Amino acid sequence: MAAAFAFAVTTTASAAKIHRSYSYYNVNGKTADELDKSLSRGGYLLKSTGQRHPGAAQIRFDAKARYGSNGKACSVTGVYVNVYAKVFLPRWKQRRKAQPELALVWDTLSQDIRRHEESHLVIARTHAGEIERRIRALPSRPDCALLRQDINKVTQQVMKNHEAAQKRFDFVETLNFEKRFERLLTYRLERELAKKN
């Protein structure tokens, strides 16, 4: 996953939202080997590793908190976190003319790539909700500068947890890829056979 994090605490508030956009790159080939090579050449380049990936999600957090003082103490009056995500996915140009067996393999793979990237967004949404909950729960402070420090501390902790959760997810997915793909492909094959019978 490619992640770009930007976090700003300001004094406005609104409803939390997830904003998604999708971008596709073309994959070419008439055989599984050609498709594999095309995915390797055309996949999203992750700058941190220098490797290309079949799919990617760039995720950015935009958090806003409202707080104020009543003359005695400063407290949080509102908070939301928006998640902005750009998802990069492959599109096979020859899919419609492909042999049924290869098309089935591609459909299984491309659906798994999409599911994987969407899972990154679910992880981000979970942590965005955690930021909101934890900032709302912050106790009042004698002045707003101290409260602002508390907000920043919570944000940094949750963002660190978020990055670790994304890395754990990728690690587990990589370990289980072959078994998962085999299981998904078997399921699709059985479903296709059931349709014909």
Rank of each mutant, 00 (worst) to 15 (best):
L189M: 13
I18L: 13
R95G: 09
A63I: 00
I59C: 09
R136K: 15
I18Y: 05
E190T: 03
Q166M: 04
P142R: 03
T77I: 11
C144D: 10
S75K: 07
L193N: 12
L45W: 13
G71A: 09
P139I: 09
A8Q: 10
L146G: 15
V27S: 04
A137K: 11
T126R: 11
G129E: 06
V154N: 00
D112C: 08
D33C: 02
E178F: 12
N70D: 15
Y80N: 13
K153S: 00
L89Q: 07
K30C: 00
F171M: 09
A194K: 05
K30A: 05
H116F: 12
Y22G: 04
H127A: 02
D36Y: 06
C74I: 10
E178N: 10
Y44P: 01
A145W: 15
K30E: 02
K179Y: 14
N82D: 15
A57S: 13
L35A: 05
R125N: 13
T31K: 06
E182D: 03
T11Y: 12
A145V: 14
V81M: 08
K160D: 00
P54C: 13
S48G: 13
T10E: 07
N26L: 04
W92H: 05
L189K: 04
C144N: 09
K93P: 10
A164P: 07
L89E: 05
I135H: 02
